[in-house]
C-alpha cells in the first residue's frame, strides 16, 4: 500500500513539475510583455528545481533557485526595466528573413537529438552519474558530499578553468564599463 502511495506521489510531483516547466516555457515565448516573459522563465526554473528535488538532487535544486531565479533573471529584469522595453511589442515583425522557418528546423533537430540521446544512454534519467562510475547517487546529505568531491578532485581543472573564465569576464566587463568614467567624459555626462 505504501509503495503505491509513493508511486502516486512521484507521478503527481512529476506532472506538477512538467506542467510548470512547459507552461513557463510556452509563456516565455508567447507573452507580449518582456516582464511577463521573465516571470514565466522563473516559473520554468521553479519547475526544474522541483524535478531536481524529485530526483534527490537537492543541492542542484537549491543552486538553481539561488543562482538562476535569484540573480540571473533579476538581472534580466533590471535590463528590461532600464532600457524601457517593458512595453508590448509587435511580434509579427521578422528582423531576420525566414527566422521562423529556421526556428522550426532548430526545434526538430533538438527534439531528434534528445530522443536519440535518451534511446542510446541513461544519463538523463539519473540512474547513472559521471562522478560515481555508475553507482547510484546517495540521497540527502551524502549527495552534496559526492558532488563536492567530484568537482574538487576529478573535475578540478575544469572547475578552476570555469572560475578563471568568470573572473576574466568580470574584469573585462568592469574595464569596458569604466572607460567612459574618466575625468573628461564625467563632465560631459553630468
Amino acid at each position: 500500500m505504501i509503495a503505491s502511495t509513493y508511486a502516486l506521489a512521484s507521478i503527481l510531483v512529476f506532472v506538477t513539475a512538467a506542467l510548470l516547466i512547459l507552461g513557463g516555457a510556452v509563456g516565455v515565448i508567447t507573452m507580449k510583455n518582456p516582464v511577463h516573459s521573465a516571470l514565466s522563465l522563473i516559473m520554468t526554473l521553479f519547475g526544474v528545481a522541483v524535478a531536481f528535488v524529485a530526483q534527490s538532487a537537492d543541492f542542484l535544486a537549491a543552486v538553481e533557485i539561488i543562482v538562476y531565479a535569484g540573480a540571473i533573471v533579476v538581472l534580466f529584469l533590471f535590463v528590461i526595466m532600464f532600457l524601457g522595453v517593458d512595453r508590448k511589442e509587435n511580434v509579427h515583425v521578422e528582423p531576420l528573413v525566414g527566422q521562423r522557418a529556421f526556428a522550426g528546423v532548430g526545434v526538430i533537430i533538438t527534439i531528434a537529438g534528445l530522443i536519440a540521446l535518451m534511446a542510446k544512454s541513461h544519463w538523463v534519467t539519473g540512474t547513472m552519474s559521471v562522478s560515481t562510475n555508475g553507482v547510484k547517487l546517495a540521497v540527502g546529505q551524502g549527495n552534496v558530499k559526492q558532488l563536492g568531491t567530484a568537482v574538487f578532485t576529478t573535475y578540478l581543472f575544469a572547475f578552476e578553468a570555469t572560475a578563471a573564465l568568470l573572473v576574466i569576464a568580470v574584469v573585462g566587463a568592469v574595464l569596458l564599463a569604466r572607460r567612459e568614467r574618466t575625468l573628461q567624459s564625467e563632465e560631459v555626462e553630468v
Binding site: 537537492d58 543541492f59 535544486a61 537549491a62 543552486v63 533557485i65 531565479a69 535569484g70 540521497v139
Partner: peptide, 15 residues
C-alpha cells in the same frame, strides 16, 4: 537536506 540553502533561495525570491 538542502536546509540553509533554502533560506538563501527564499531571500533571492523575495527580491
Amino acid at each position: 537536506p538542502m536546509g540553509i540553502l533554502l533560506m538563501l533561495a527564499m531571500s533571492g525570491v523575495s527580491v
